[in-house]
Nucleic acid binder design. Sequence first.
DNA 1: AAAGATTGAATAATCAATCTTT
DNA 2: AAAGATTGATTATTCAATCTTT
Lengths: 169, 169
Amino acid sequence: MAGRPDTDEQLLLHPYLTTMGLLVESFEGFHAPMTRRVEDSSGVSSVWFGILLRLARSPGHRLRMSDLAAQASLSASGLTRAVDRMVAAGLVERQACPSDRRGQECVLTEAGEATVLAALPGHLAHVTEAFETAFTPEELDQFTVLMRKLRDAANPCAAVHSDFGSEGG
Amino acid sequence: MAGRPDTDEQLLLHPYLTTMGLLVESFEGFHAPMTRRVEDSSGVSSVWFGILLRLARSPGHRLRMSDLAAQASLSASGLTRAVDRMVAAGLVERQACPSDRRGQECVLTEAGEATVLAALPGHLAHVTEAFETAFTPEELDQFTVLMRKLRDAANPCAAVHSDFGSEGG
DNA sequence: AAAGATTGAATAATCAATCTTT
DNA sequence: AAAGATTGATTATTCAATCTTT
């Protein structure tokens, strides 16, 4: 009869749960091997590589700690610890933010730039291979559009702050 | 001239890197709020909820430790620790695998089933809202197909083991 | 009071090594 | 010898609290 509540079994096997599980598994299945490769070729963790890459793509090779935290999907304290370790490794340095004395900028060092540039051709080759194996050019375009929609729907604020997603493509 | 190597700047701004960054940011931007909601409504971490959900969807409400580790994107030791804590919380129990005395099965308890079923309607509502806000039905179909291609290309083995991705949809 | 950044305490993840069974 | 599972040691991440600046 109409309005009858779904059984537990129907809920458990709902197609949207299948799609959700597929999304998570697909991302992990794609991301984990990519992570291993970038760590092998760069010699640093994928978190560090992501930070170095975002700095290298930013004007002045620098980003505010809070912006970097958001872009790297780390908490503020998580980024502070990561940058502590990267400073110790000589890959980045902290500089006072000239316009806001509460702030700190994270700035790429020569060694940091060298690290990211050395690993970049190999990384790009892996990314290219993964996308071109999985997708035709038309599918890659479709995919980019759909991912942007998914992100913007779930998290509207992310679009403006994003160095990667809000332009280009 | 032909064959001239790319400059660092060209590599850094390569469209595939933009797409890769967009993919990661989109997934995190989608997944993080979903994680917070499922933790709020279920009272357990999203890792635990994922484990409970996969067990609830499996025949006999049970899975081998190694299969569960793969599906939950955890290492073998990571899953052992997680299951230790879930046994202590009364949500799952270990049973010897009848066909292979090296193996252990992780089995849902009554309390574990109650936990996942209580949170399921709310979780499904959030998933539904996220997908239907982001996508038209046609786009959701496209998206499912593309995610499956991406996973299968990057990680061909995952398809066979997957409870979520290899059937239905 | 709110925002940016950092610190202490606690949690959870991994690698390498180990043990049992196949 | 290889696979499944677990344990010890280490590392990384988070939350809550704190400090400075706006």
